[in-house]
Design a protein around this nucleic acid. Sequence first.
DNA 1: ATGAAAGCGCTAACAC
DNA 2: GTGTTAGCGCTTTCAT
Lengths: 324, 324
Amino acid sequence: MGKVKLENVAKFAGVSPTTVSRVLNNRGYISDATRKKVNDAIEELGYFPNEVARSLYGSKTNLIGILFPNVSNPFYGEMVTEIEKNLSQKGYKTLLCNTSDNEEKETEHLKMLLSNQVDGIVVGSRNQPSDIYEKANLAVVAIDRFVSAKVPIVRSDNYGGACLATRYLLTKKCKKIAIFIGSPEEEIKKGDLRLKGYLDTLTENNHGEHICRVSFDENENYQKAKISEYMDANPDIDGVFATGDILAGMIKSIARQKNKNPEIVGYDGSDTFLSLCGDISTVRQPVKKMARLSVDILLDSLAGNYEHEGQEYILPVTLIERSV
Amino acid sequence: MGKVKLENVAKFAGVSPTTVSRVLNNRGYISDATRKKVNDAIEELGYFPNEVARSLYGSKTNLIGILFPNVSNPFYGEMVTEIEKNLSQKGYKTLLCNTSDNEEKETEHLKMLLSNQVDGIVVGSRNQPSDIYEKANLAVVAIDRFVSAKVPIVRSDNYGGACLATRYLLTKKCKKIAIFIGSPEEEIKKGDLRLKGYLDTLTENNHGEHICRVSFDENENYQKAKISEYMDANPDIDGVFATGDILAGMIKSIARQKNKNPEIVGYDGSDTFLSLCGDISTVRQPVKKMARLSVDILLDSLAGNYEHEGQEYILPVTLIERSV
DNA sequence: ATGAAAGCGCTAACAC
DNA sequence: GTGTTAGCGCTTTCAT
């Protein structure tokens, strides 16, 4: 059974293709009689329109590309889930790209997306800005990342969140508070706000800084080794701010193995993390709101609304305190 | 700057569209001279082919739809990440659909995918079989789910895994071992193999069964209440087999709040879970292998290879023991 | 070795 | 109200 096309429906109903198209799209005037004939034919033949042909004609695909490092991390997972839900509700389709935070892959995926004529892009991967975004004439929204002067950014209050976390550790009477950073080096150089919040808060309170960079690109075992090493070298750490929940979880496990129990605060606060680890405090980013806002901005831009250009939307975070 | 099309390249290079197409696709004979001219023109104009037009002509989109309940659960997250990686490597693009394990949404998404002429589908959502899969003439692979007599299934050894988990609890001298099931009711009725493995193992060892169904459709708070209630009613439970890791995490937290510490074994064993919770044992599904196999089967089918029809591929699981 | 022309399935001017 | 026709951007016979 070959695919049924509009033409077949037209023949079956004894009308022209145009008429069928008009019925499908509810455009122009059609008598109720022919409308019924057409609808019956559609029903009878089990016809549904070919979106590829529609896209080609209309030069609008309703396809949105979303670029994230991966979707294994529940924070990204929830973000992507929510973005897809919002998009789907508005009639858009989601083309998923995992960049593994690898520049080449991002570029490759980006080219693919452009070839596929996506209407817009949501980027959450954390590579260096690419000029492709500039050149391509499409709607783009970035999540917690700088892409170009024009691309709007949606992020949570990284600075405020870090201050919150660090102050919390201070209220818990921690004497030696370390930060474990899992961001790419490049990002840290540009002035990581989570790091800055941590540093400022410590300085204000006359505390010394203790920084452990857990190389982001490396595999898990490498990261664990790094954490373990750092903790051995600094056995009196009694407070930890981890810039991501997964990192926080790893630190907790490793500490436990060493019979230590530092106060730990993570960052992200995905529902999955909250369910999974009942005993690690964290700074919760409003994932749903961020996803929703990103999609709203994207659709606004798609509608020709330029007001978001160059804007940065910073959403508030909350500290979620957990006890053992 | 309007989009550059093949025709522009042709004019710029002083050749016909056909020639450009031939260069692009490496088909037919072209002199080195014209090939160079064309490639220079492409470079100069920054041309790249419109995949929509290609798809329309070729009636092949290289688009694969993937349907999962969501991508927040790291098990699905990792599965989807791996599937996308494998597909991308083979030149396919991933259209992501979150069904929220909701039948209507799945149907809606399915129609969308068909309209978009996807070449194939990977289903991991757990709804009732839909006849759409039968009717649509495309390649389908199901992950741990029955779709129709023809659709190949990739799953892990649910029965064996459950036995493994239950036996482990027995070796830990647990006296009263409960199973917490988070599957949809429908699935349980059909003979959930994780449940069966649990029951058989207990029977063999003259242990009684204790089943708590944590309604799958309900929200997290409801589930937590249910778990809490069950534990209050059965305070002497000292061993727990949770049919999913998230469930296991929730149970652990709730038990801790009640100052209990039953031995718990989860199911899934995603890398994220392992990093996040260092202290819950689990049955690990080979996510990467499952993803890889699914994609291989799909591409085989796409290539016209029917050998996978009606096959079920059951991959072995491993118990990962963790200590506090 | 290269080009002209038809067509993939659909939509939208423009006629009538 | 409805049909005719051209065209979205590309590929591919079929000529030459």
